[in-house]
Nucleic acid binder design. Structure first.
Lengths: 236, 236
DNA sequence: CGGAGTTTTGATAGACCTCAATGACTGTGG
DNA sequence: CCACAGTCATTGAGGTCTATCAAAACTCCG
């Protein structure tokens, strides 16, 4: 099933009609290769891209040439929903793996949500969850040291992928280099490396060969101060 | 006019009917005094509170007793819209001044947006703007040093208040202590103090007696890497 | 096998934190 | 109108976490 539909259905009950209408405006799929920008800062895309498969990252270039990642996107996530209100995107989205997206024409999406309030609600509510994730990032960056910060991100990604049913043997494919992590966490790659070593030595988690293993999920969550309830959305 | 309506009208065109329907579900107003929690983490409020007047801050308590602020709320902002999807709030909101809110019953809001797609869109789009602000916070916390970080927050708050027409002589009433700033910016109060002194000595900005003055808005924005377009929402 | 990207490790430096004390400001009550 | 308490701002000294610079080892892939 279309993962966007799946995501919306975790926050709202859609009628068959609603679902079909949404699927009807999904345009052609398009594939981006690893490293390619799906959306570039300053663009005024005519489409809202929804990720069908693969990983992507939102990031913003800073004046000194560094980049700050503000979110990781996985299947079901929208890359640039803000273009429905902002004239241009205020950040970029880059493919971390080969990424397949479906393109929802902006106008069609606006009309669709105008005609189908249930869908408009669903998009709103899905955005509220995304926002809860973003708040958790703020708390993570502002309130925790490197050790807890990395642990928390690991817990978040693990929980999100689990929710999508994308774990393999409890392990998680993570296409992130230590440099990606450092750009997401406000640390340097070198320090990320050292802290990963400590997490590994402490038996909390291991990241190797793009595979994340939670060695002791409970102690890891404790070290991270991780409480998954913000992610979720059990059916109301 | 109800500042919530004003906020929604910056992102969508509402009919008179829509506006009246929204105003109709605004329940009694309620006033919280400074320091009081408007929403507490773990609550399951039956109302979504919209700020009519005053300042508030979202924050989360961390295990070590510190608190991380994830946003400042000003008139028009919703305190706890996430309760439409999350069973309980994942953070608290505290009044920084005396705060007047209007209470929108959760059920009524859900029904209203179900019946009036334009309103549902407006709430969605307003949330997208709030999210852009939050992304900017992530970038600020993760990507900038203390000097630029404080400068950026000052620019953001100035721009938001200007947009609401709440500046006085280009100056901004800011009911924040240096400790609030430190809790928002992931710094210590002592360091905030030192950096504020430097910003003052450099002629960039001054914060004194709860009044923020941008001494040199242009150089300040440059130091902060501030680009206001994310905030905004000119009519599309 | 070669070469680029990535991970790992060491040594040193700097931004920011902690602890602690002083000084300014605000509101209150006598 | 002044004295007082409480909150908040300011300053100093020393310590820690994380950054920077540099180089070596590893991995992956063509």
């Amino acid at each position: 099933m279309n993962p966007l539909v799946a995501k919306l259905e975790t926050v709202a009950v859609l009628s068959v009609d609603d679902r079909q209408a949404l699927e009807a405006i999904c345009g052609n799929t398009r594939t981006f290769h690893k490293g390619q920008d799906i959306v570039s800062e300053g663009d005024r895309p005519a489409h809202v891209y929804s990720i069908l498969d693969g990983w992507a990252a939102r990031y913003k270039m800073l004046p000194d040439g560094s980049q700050q990642i503000s979110g990781f996107l996985i299947p079901g996530d929208l890359c640039d929903s803000e273009i429905t209100v902002l004239r241009k995107t205020d950040h970029s989205v880059v493919a971390l793996t080969s990424v397949t997206v479906t393109a929802l024409p902006r106008e069609a999406l606006v009309e669709l949500t105008h005609e189908r309030p249930k869908l408009a609600q669903a998009f709103w509510w899905a955005t509220l969850i995304d926002m809860a994730v973003l708040r958790a990032w703020v708390v993570n960056l502002g309130g925790r040291d490197a050790h807890a910060r990395i642990a928390h991100l690991a817990c978040e990604l693990h929980a999100r992928m689990k929710h999508l049913g994308l774990l393999r043997d409890g392990e998680l494919y993570l296409p992130l280099t230590q440099e990606h992590l450092s750009n997401a966490l406000g640390l340097t790659p070198v320090h990320v490396n050292r802290v990963l070593k400590r997490l590994r030595d402490d038996g909390l988690m291991r990241l190797r060969n793009r595979t994340l293993t939670l060695l002791d999920a409970e102690r890891l969550a404790a070290a991270a101060g991780f409480d998954p309830s913000y992610l979720h959305a059990e059916p109301v």
